[in-house]
Structures are given as structure tokens and as C-alpha cells.
Amino acid sequence: MTWTLRFAALSVQISRRALLAGLCLMALLLAAALLAVQTGSYPLSSGQMAAVLQGRGTGIEQMILLDHRLPRIAAALGAGAAFGLAGAMFQTMLRNPLAAPDVIGFNAGASCGALAAVILTGGMMLAGAIAGAALAAALVLLLSWKDGLAPGRLILTGIGASLTLTAAADLLVSRIDPQTASDMVTWLTGSLHSRGWGDAARVWAGLALLAPVLWRLHFPLARLAMDDGIATGLGLPVSGLRLAVAGAGIVLTALAVTAAGPLPFVAFAAGPIARRLVPGGKPALLAAAAAGALMTLLADTAARMVPGVQLPAGVFTALTGAPVLLWLLLAHFRKGTL
């Protein structure tokens, strides 16, 4: 069952299932955020939280909530949403669940870029990550381009690039002094440790700037998801469109990596989870963004719940992404769609 919403010339069709899934995701996100605010090495009760928000909390409560917990949660949500969007876009475009940015080498590129920047300049990690992701993506796309982009070739090329770049990152880590190396390995696994309002603002501003582009790409992406022949027959410039989607995906990946490090498996798992919640022909970009945000936030909260050690969130996204990966592979192999 679908409803049609009309605003002047614009009309949007919403299926009841999609609306229900969206509401559920929103509720889950809210619950996860509440949990994330209250847990940590200094637990805050709901009463304390309300007091701080009304301006009545003690100094330390105020500092923990406003300067540590909230920006970290905002950064986790933004980074997760960006990862989820990038993953769903690549997976839809290439019609293959393995074609997520983290599988085909963009995350490894970002890691290498950040490490190289730290070694060369002693800082500039974020700029290095963006440059590395863009370079890796350009390399993978160029090398797999042969009369257009074939998904199988792109994925294998991406895996090759990912392995080479991971080796390069390992080499770079072994060249840094042990103390910095430990920090860098934490970052390379994906961590939201000590994120401030600046990090959160950067990723959300990027998402806001990209929103109109994503809105424009959303409709042709649905045609692209069907078949090259159908998309070409409908008058779409298939290869050009793929480049545009890839460009947006790279920017999203870089944004997410600067906020949370190269978190593994979020971009990969968010799309398929969203597709399960919202079935149908359309790419479920919003649902994928919500699923990515939820995954990242829960992973970060779980990481903070382990006492005694500073675990990076990437440990938990890897642990949750793993079963999704195996399930997806089996499902696709059984249907013969991979």
C-alpha cells in the first residue's frame, strides 16, 4: 500500500512498509543515542541529563555531556550515515553487494594517505585521508575501465588495490615510532575517540552540501539498478552517470573517514540491511544512511562499554559486519546472482 504526498508540482510516493521501516529506524536511532549519552566511564542518569540540558548540572556533568558525549555521538551518526550512503550508492550502481567502497580499496587508500601525511608533515591527517581515498578511487576506476565499468572487473581490481594499499599502510606503520604507531593503528581500525564539535560539524556540513546532489542522483540510480540495456534504452548516459555517482560516493567516503577513520564493513553492511527493511526496486538511500548511522553509533557505544581499554569502534563493526557478509554471500550464491 502506498500513499502519495503532493507539494505543489512535486509528488512523492511512500509505501507503508518504507514508512514503517523508517519510523522503526528513527526510534532505534533515538534509543541508541539515549543509551550512548548515558553510558561510559562516567555514567549519567536521565535525571542528571535533564538537569544539564536545563542548565542546572554540575561542571563535570556539563563538560562530559556537552563537550564529550554529544559531539562524539553527532560525529558517529554523521560518519555512519555517510558510509551507509556511499556503500548503498556503489552497491546499487554496480548491482553487486561486494562493490562497497571499503571492499574495493577506498578505505585502504584513505589510510595510506593519512599515514603518509603524518610521516611527511607530522599532521594533516584529514587532508591526507581525503587525497588518499580520491587517488585510490581514481586508480581503481581507471584501471578497471575498459569500454565501460564491468562490476566483476571493478571488484577484483578494487580487491587487488585494497591488498596493495593495505600492505603499503602496514609498511608505513612499521616506519613510525611505537607510540605514534599504536595511535595510528587505533585510527586505522576506525575510532571515534575524542571527537569534538568541529569533527561533527564538518561531516554534517558535508552531508548537507551533498544532499541536493544525492537527491538528483537518486532517481537515475534506480534505473541504473536494473540493467545497462534498460537504462540506456531509457536515455540515460550510463557511464557518465556512474562517474557522477562514483564521485559523490568518494566524497562521502572521505567525509566519513575523516570523522571516524576507515571503519570496516559499515558501508558494506548498511545497504543490504536497508534493502531488507525496504524492499522494492528503488535504492533505499535514506534507510541505508540510517542503518549506517545506527551501526556506527552502537559500535562506538559498545566500544566505550568495555572497561579498562580504549577499544576502537572498528572492532565491533568488523564483528557485526562479518555475519552480514557471510549471509549475503550465501544468499546470492544460492540465487545465482553473483
Binding site: 561486494l98 571492499v103 577484483l156 564493513f265 581499554v309 564483528l319
Partner: peptide, 18 residues
């Protein structure tokens, strides 16, 4: 194989960080 090895590498790194 590539998916499995990506998964194993991620798990290995995660375990080592603990």
C-alpha cells in the same frame, strides 16, 4: 575467497588491538 580474507584480516586486526 576475497570476502572471507577481508573478514579474517579485519578480525585479526581487531583482536590484536585488544
Amino acid at each position: 575467497g576475497a570476502a572471507l580474507s577481508a573478514l579474517i584480516i579485519a578480525l585479526t586486526r581487531a583482536l590484536l588491538l585488544v
